[in-house]
C-alpha cells in the first residue's frame, strides 16, 4: 500500500522565488491498483512521481510504502521516464539488464528473463541491437522492459507514451494493460490523454495547477479486460466528460 500524506514540495528557483509545485496532497493507493494522473502542464505530476520514487525529498508530508517512509529510491520500484533514456553504448539486452547490474542482483536466469520480457513487448530478435537502431516506440518498449526486469511491486510511469505517435500509443496502452494483468503490480501512470487515463485506470487522479493539488479522484468501474471499444461505453464518456470539466472548467474560471 502506498500512503501519500499531506505531501508538499516547494522548489526554490534560481532567482530566489519559491515555486509551490505540490501542496497538501493526500492519497492512499491499494496494492495492484492502476492509478492514472491527469492535469494541466506544470501542476506537479512529475514532481509527485519523483517524490514517490524517492529521487527527491518532500518539503513537508511523506510518502509511505508498506509502512516505510520513502527516503531514497527503493529496489521494489520501477520507473519509466517520458523519454526512453537508454544507454547508447549498450545493446537492448544490456539496457534491460542494467538495473540488475547496478543493484548487484544479476542471476543465472536474468538474461532469459530479459529475453522473455522483450519477447512479450514484441522486441524478440532485437536483443543485440543498439538503441539508435530502434524506433522511438521500440526504445520506449525496451525502457518498459528495463523497469520490469527486477519485478518491482510498484511501477511509476511519467508520460511514458508522450513521445509516441497516436497509433503506437494506443498499441502501447493495451500492451501495458496486458503486462499488468499478467504480473499484477501497483501502477502510477501520468498522462496528458484523458482517453488513456480512463481506459487504463481503476482510479483517475485529476490535478489542478498553481499550486498543484488534487482536484478530484474519479473511480472507474468499467469491466476488464478493456480495449478501445470501451470508449463507446456511457460510463467511459461520463468519466471523460467529468475530467474535461475539471481541467478546462478551472481554466476558464
Amino acid at each position: 500500500m502506498i500512503e501519500i500524506d499531506r505531501l508538499s514540495k516547494v522548489f526554490r528557483s534560481r532567482d530566489g522565488a519559491d515555486v509551490v509545485a505540490l501542496e497538501d496532497i493526500s492519497l492512499t493507493i491499494d496494492d495492484n491498483k492502476f492509478i492514472t494522473i491527469v492535469g494541466p502542464s506544470g501542476c506537479g505530476k512529475s514532481t509527485l512521481l519523483r517524490l514517490a520514487s524517492g529521487l527527491i525529498r518532500p518539503t513537508s508530508g511523506s510518502v509511505t510504502i508498506d509502512r516505510a517512509v520513502v527516503e531514497e529510491p527503493r529496489q521494489d520500484t520501477g520507473i519509466v521516464f517520458q523519454m526512453p533514456v537508454l544507454l547508447p553504448w549498450a545493446t537492448i539486452l544490456d539496457n534491460v539488464l542494467f538495473p540488475l547490474k547496478m543493484m548487484h542482483r544479476e542471476e543465472a536466469d536474468s538474461t532469459e528473463q530479459a529475453r522473455h520480457l522483450l519477447g512479450m513487448v514484441g522486441l524478440g530478435g532485437f536483443e543485440g541491437k543498439y538503441p539508435r537502431e530502434l524506433s522511438g516506440g521500440m526504445q520506449q518498449r525496451a525502457a518498459i522492459c528495463r523497469a520490469l526486469i527486477h519485478d518491482p511491486n510498484i511501477l511509476l510511469m511519467d508520460e511514458p507514451f508522450g513521445a509516441l505517435d497516436a497509433l503506437t500509443r494506443e498499441e502501447m496502452a493495451l500492451e501495458i494493460l496486458r503486462i499488468w494483468t499478467n504480473q499484477p503490480k501497483t501502477i502510477l501512470f501520468v498522462t496528458h490523454s484523458i482517453t488513456e487515463a480512463v481506459l487504463l485506470a481503476d482510479r483517475v487522479v485529476v490535478m489542478s495547477a498553481r499550486p498543484g493539488r488534487i482536484a478530484e479522484i474519479i473511480d472507474v468501474d468499467l469491466p476488464r479486460p478493456r480495449t478501445f471499444e470501451i470508449e463507446a461505453h456511457h460510463e467511459f464518456q461520463q468519466s471523460a466528460q467529468r475530467i474535461r470539466e475539471l481541467i478546462f472548467g478551472n481554466r476558464r474560471g
Binding site: 520514487s53 529521487l55 531514497e72 529510491p73 529496489q75 520500484t77 520507473i79 521516464f81 523519454m83 533514456v85 544507454l87 542494467f98 538495473p99 547490474k101 547496478m102 543493484m103
Partner: peptide, 21 residues
C-alpha cells in the same frame, strides 16, 4: 541529467555512476 537520474533510481554508488554511466 536523465542518465544520472536513471542511475540514481537504481541506487548507483558514486563508483558505479562513474564506471557504468
Amino acid at each position: 541529467a536523465e542518465l544520472l537520474e536513471l542511475g540514481r533510481s537504481f541506487k548507483a554508488s558514486k563508483f558505479q555512476e562513474l564506471y557504468r554511466i
